[in-house]
Amino acid sequence: MNQSLELVLIEDDPHDIEIFLNVVEWIGMNDKVRVFSDGRAALDYLQKRETKQEGKNPLPGVIFLDLKMPLMNGNEVLQILRSDPHTARIPVVILTSSSLDDDIRQSYAFGSNSYVVKPLEFEKFADTIRDIVNYWRNINVRPVT
């Protein structure tokens, strides 16, 4: 995976966005994050990229997806991503406060790659994000699309 590949955060809560951005800044990769506050906008962006500027603007490296969002919740966004062949392979990490078994089971059923309960402590949160990005960017190997 290319280092330049961007991270996408789909999150409605401005405080959580702020914390996430702080974390990214803390771990030093803030310029590569694209944030959407609702699922529709994120899907528009991702599908438009895929159809109109194929090849020039590669798909994002990892999508961090919150579950509890207005209008369209995280699982719905996940379903649409996975049903579209061109976005089906983007790694999606569910980043949420919910540790409910139903949520966890459902998300995996819809095709999420990881499920992460947002750690309470800032340092742990930062470590977690860094590890995830590191994993998907540098450790995991994907087939060339």
């Binding site: 809560d13 405080h15 959580d16 702020e18 914390i19 702080n22 509890k68 949420t96 406060s97 919910s98 540790s99 409910l100 947002k118 750690p119 309470l120 402590e121 800032f122 949160f125």
Partner: peptide, 15 residues
């Protein structure tokens, strides 16, 4: 699980 934790996390972040 969701809503009570979010403020806690924010408090952490703020601290």
């Amino acid at each position: 699980s969701h809503d009570l934790r979010a403020p806690l996390r924010r408090m952490y972040a703020d601290m």
